[in-house]
Design a protein around this nucleic acid. Structure first.
Lengths: 215, 215
DNA sequence: TTGCTTTTGTGAAACGATTCACAAGGCGCC
DNA sequence: GGCGCCTTGTGAATCGTTTCACAAAAGCAA
């Protein structure tokens, strides 16, 4: 299989969302043109994106919506559910804990950690906040994804521990650049950086609409 | 001035953060090589990024840290402060309200809105939550940036109103694709999409470390 | 001043992603 | 079955970004 651009993966996730919407409305079939319009891209892009993974359409007809939804779920690994641990029960962390959609999408938060002894032991959504020093033992019980929601200064040492414990996927909310071994996938959500992008655009009156990512 | 890639702007914001760190440690001068190493990129990339905006270094010597910090602040529009409104006082919205760093970076939240009558009138960090129908009148008082933290279904109609009121920069936290006029800059923070990217990586055991964005 | 070392700034080359353009396939109608 | 219409899948062309490579400073020492 050829190397799949990261931007393609982002768009697949968007296509999936759009296709589900259409599916709910009873749409049975959709052309690349129609899907592209909704996704804000081109028909050729849609077809190229899908072509990395196989052939899903019928010429002259388009794509069968329920089948394509199914295929995209498989490609994106959403058939199964993933075991998630959250490190950092501050503002962002607790906001995430309450975000019920995660579970619906198959991301199940199974443990929460915080370094603050005052927080340890408190209950949050059926979960007891644990002390940081339990991190390794819990991770080795089979956590797939770790969400890092600690202050910037603490983030690198947390990912170091987490990757040493064998976790291969990390979602980082700390506004800092992290380094991970190359067999670990790291995604960073950096609101401060996005705001600076807006600041740049305003200060320089860039006049082209630009979306950060590919959905 | 040539067109500046969006990835360049993202890296500038990272360089700025790194330079400030070095500056605090008393570092006076830094080469593109040293900066690149910390930023996880190449020296050539650093120099090319900066070259879009002028010439900042001294050959044979490198960059004067305090001066470059200053230049980057100007380029990114961080010399002034920006007036921000937040729409949606749910979990994410209130987490942002408490995020004191924003103000330090020059993003001052001046108004908060929510459509829930039960929340309207409540105080949050010196701000009273206002009803949605006051949106237009407040925005016209000179808001630069709107942060959208409402459910996906409501997001498009909020950005429509906000852009009609003349706002030219929007930061979206709703997990949906939004359409804005082309003179408006839109950035989206989509945690669900990032998680799906991790899911894809795990399901397909992609073995290359990849950071979402450019910081 | 000359010569040596270092590091920038930048065209040119390489690489990667998107868009184009069209042959191949599939459906429906006569 | 044959014909016409439509839409996919994909190599080739285009476009944009990153990397390379080197001439042009700048400091320093003798």
């Amino acid at each position: 299989m050829k190397k799949v651009p990261e931007s393609t993966v982002g768009r697949l996730s968007l296509y999936l969302r759009l296709l589900r919407e259409q599916s709910e409305r009873g749409v049975i079939t959709l052309s690349s043109e129609e899907l592209a319009e909704r996704a804000g891209t081109t028909a050729a892009q849609v077809r190229k994106d899908l072509s990395f993974f196989g052939t899903f359409g019928k010429r002259g007809l388009g794509y069968a919506v329920p089948e394509l939804v199914q295929s995209l779920r498989t490609i994106l690994g959403l058939e199964r559910s993933w075991r998630v641990a959250l490190v950092g029960a501050g503002k962002i962390g607790t906001a995430l804990l309450g975000y019920q959609d995660l579970r619906k999408q198959g991301f199940v938060i199974e443990a929460v950690f915080d370094s603050d002894p005052a927080k340890v032991g408190r209950r949050w959504n059926n979960l007891v906040i644990r002390a940081d020093n339990e991190l390794e033992s819990v991770l080795e019980g089979g956590i797939d994804i770790v969400i890092v929601a600690v202050p910037a200064e603490a983030a690198q040492s947390i990912v170091d521990r987490v990757t040493r414990a064998g976790v291969r996927a990390v979602l980082n909310f700390a506004p800092t650049r992290l380094t991970v071994p190359e067999d670990v996938t790291l995604k960073t959500v950096n609101m401060a950086a996005e705001l600076e992008g807006l600041s740049y655009a305003l200060a320089n009156e860039v006049w082209r609409s630009q979306d950060t990512e590919e959905h």
